[in-house]
């Protein structure tokens, strides 16, 4: 039986409308030629990928990773360092960024996934902090790296096929990747693998007693999530043309959690909406006052106390699960 893509329901509702409007906005934005707006929009797209990857762990897997910025950094640094070494071919550096992030996720996952609950939250945070310090130690020559960060020395080249220096080209490229990630993630969370991950979230003990090696499934989910986030990290590097340890700072990990929750965890478009809202608020309020966190912080508390289901919960038809 055919299911509506992304939503698991065939009837048209508010969610489809939201997605179509968002997609349309993203498609026509480059035509206006406003460099600032386009940059913000591309940033929403790239960070959305990280948010989706985090939601696979958080919303579907019930794993509160407080260190997801580490993959944003790993992707960016791989791209940066390889480009410095003279490897600027996108067909090499992108797979390398993804591969290293997957390996990183595997190593970190082997330790953090042995723990649960509060331990898991704190340990993912601590690991990200460790990589933050490692990034501080990455130096290229005399002038680059360390806490000052690494500028991208030359643009990533896809055998002449894509000109990343054209913001519109880069925008459409990231948009295409986001759509692909959405499709793959949709398949993933509804697959038999996704079913195991969701069951582990609800009742890990039961999954074990039925014969599932829950650690193994969670580890693979962690690696997939890390890979997607690493890809986004590389794109983020191409967007900013700069990566620094700040990318891995734990506040960024916290921001990512906020994007997922505010948008609505346990859905695939929730994180996109959340990222959009977060970035627009950041840009909007920080233009009004430099103390935007003094407004944003209390907003978060209110969201937790009064609006737990996220924005996605508001546009989702009542009575539908997931």
């Amino acid at each position: 039986m055919p299911k509506g893509l992304l939503f698991g329901s065939r009837s048209f509702d508010l969610r489809h409308l939201t997605m179509l409007v968002l997609l349309a906005v993203m498609l026509i934005l480059p035509l206006f030629g406003d460099a600032y707006l386009l940059r913000v929009a591309t940033r929403v797209i790239v960070l959305s990928m990280v948010a989706i990857s985090l939601d696979i762990l958080l919303g579907y897997g019930g794993l509160i990773s407080f260190g997801h910025a580490m993959f944003l950094g790993s992707g960016g640094y791989v791209l940066g360092v390889l480009t410095y070494l003279g490897i600027g071919n996108g067909f090499v550096v992108y797979p390398a960024a993804i591969a290293l992030s997957v390996v990183l996720a595997c190593i970190v996952g082997m330790i953090v996934l042995r723990t649960v609950g509060v331990y898991f939250i704190m340990i993912t945070l601590a690991f990200a902090q460790m990589l933050y310090y490692l990034a501080n130690g990455i130096r290229i020559g005399e002038n680059y790296g360390g806490d000052e960060g690494l500028p991208l020395p030359s643009r990533t080249d896809f055998l002449g096929a894509l000109n990343f220096n054209d913001p519109a080209v880069f925008h459409y490229f990231t948009l295409a990747i986001l759509v692909a990630i959405l499709y793959v993630s949709y398949k993933l969370v509804n697959s038999r693998f996704g079913r195991v991950i969701k069951a582990c979230r609800d009742n890990e003990r039961r999954a074990k007693s039925l014969g599932y090696n829950t650690f193994g499934y969670r580890l693979v989910a962690f690696m997939i999530s890390g890979g997607i986030a690493g890809l986004a990290g590389a794109l983020h590097m191409n967007l900013q043309k700069f990566v620094s340890p700040d990318e891995l700072h734990w506040i960024i990990s916290g921001d990512l959690l906020i994007m997922v929750i505010v948008g609505g965890a346990n859905s695939l478009i929730g994180p996109i909406i959340g990222t959009g809202v977060f970035v627009l608020l950041e840009e909007g309020i920080s233009n009004l006052t430099e103390h935007w966190m003094a407004i944003f912080g209390p907003m978060l508390i209110l969201i937790v106390l009064f609006g737990r289901r996220g924005i996605y919960g508001l546009i989702k038809p009542k009575g539908e699960d997931g």
Binding site: L188, F193, G194, N203, R206
Partner: peptide
């Protein structure tokens, strides 16, 4: 001890899936 967010059928199918090879089917 069941999986509360699944339907009854999906709970049992999930159990059956446990012995149906591995579940690295994406």
């Amino acid at each position: 001890s069941v999986i509360p967010s699944f339907s009854a059928l999906e709970n049992v199918a999930f159990a059956a899936q446990a012995i149906d090879g591995n579940s690295f089917k994406f």
